[in-house]
């Protein structure tokens, strides 16, 4: 086997892993940090994709469409937190039911507004040549995007006053209030940030994954498994899991078949959860 082929497989697998990580980061915040199982996470991703698509259709450049998608999904996320989620913290099953209903509503709304087929926006055309092979540049760029997004959330949550308040407010809402933190407001913002990250994912992946009402579904299962396997040190754990599981699945898929890739993903996930029921980071003594 030639070296250039191997490099190509590794790079495109790392790129798939990064795409998974980008789709997962919002969940790492909402589920990992806040303990909320948001079954509408995939639909927030979809809303982000449509927001970006609609913006580009109005002639707005793609790079500006991305922050618009973030703003739209953060706003919807904040409203959802205030109307629904805040009444249900600590009630896992009720939250799942409520967000499941929400995901169906968002899906139907998307079908009504946009129909089931929508035009793609076309991949920005730049390629990377490795030996005899040529790789599309945009998916490779996602490796850097995933790295930057992960570092951004890590710094936001561990190095800023907001990040400390966010963790305090969700770990012990009452005690946080007793030292002056407006827990309710902080939790709204944190949930909105998680939704905004989903919107970011939908927007930034738009050239690779076209907007469809059901696109969220494609991501949400793997994203959830990634966060569950990650465990309590949610961000670092998710990054590791996404690279290990997503990357491994993609390598398997390139040498065998895409079915084998998925089989790899789910089997290793089951094995890891059997080995670490509370996630791979359950015993880590670090915070994010």
């Amino acid at each position: 086997m030639e070296l250039d082929y191997l490099a190509t497989v590794l790079l495109s697998s790392l790129s798939s892993a990064s795409i998974l990580l980008i789709a997962t980061i919002g969940l790492a915040v909402v589920f990992g940090l806040m303990g909320v199982i948001n079954l509408a996470h995939g639909e927030f991703l979809m809303i982000g994709a449509y927001a970006a698509l609609t913006a580009t259709q109005y002639g707005i450049p793609f790079v500006i469409a991305i922050p618009i998608a973030i703003a739209v999904t953060m706003t919807i996320g904040a409203v959802v937190e205030v109307l629904i989620i805040r009444r249900l913290y600590g009630r896992l099953f009720d939250t799942m039911l409520a967000t499941w209903g929400l995901s169906i509503a968002f899906y139907q709304l998307a079908v009504l507004i946009f129909g089931t087929v929508t035009p793609g926006i076309g991949m920005p055309q730049f390629n990377l040549r490795i030996g005899n092979y040529s790789l599309a540049g945009y998916p490779l760029l996602m490796i850097a995007v995933a790295a930057v997004a992960t570092v951004f959330v890590y710094v936001l949550m561990t190095r800023t006053v907001y990040g400390m308040k966010a963790r305090a407010a969700i770990q012990m809402p009452e005690m946080a209030r007793a030292i002056g933190i407006e827990s309710a407001r902080v939790n709204t913002l944190t949930f909105a940030i998680g939704c905004g990250l989903a919107g970011f994912a939908g927007a930034v992946l738009l050239p690779i994954v076209p907007a469809t009402p059901s696109m969220g579904f494609a991501f949400v299962i793997k994203a959830f498994l990634t966060v569950v396997v990650a465990g309590p040190v949610t961000l670092t754990g998710s990054a590791l899991t996404a690279v290990g599981l997503g990357g491994g699945a993609s390598v398997t898929a390139s040498f065998l078949t895409s079915v084998a890739g998925d089989a790899f993903f789910f089997l290793i996930t089951a094995f890891l959860l059997w080995l670490y029921p509370l996630g791979i980071t359950a015993k880590w003594r670090t915070k994010m």
């Binding site: 400390m164 963790r167 770990q171 933190i181």
Partner: peptide, 12 residues
């Protein structure tokens, strides 16, 4: 706050 460091508990 259990999953925050001593420094963060005081700092926040």
């Amino acid at each position: 706050f259990p999953r925050m460091t001593v420094t963060e508990n005081i700092g926040v």
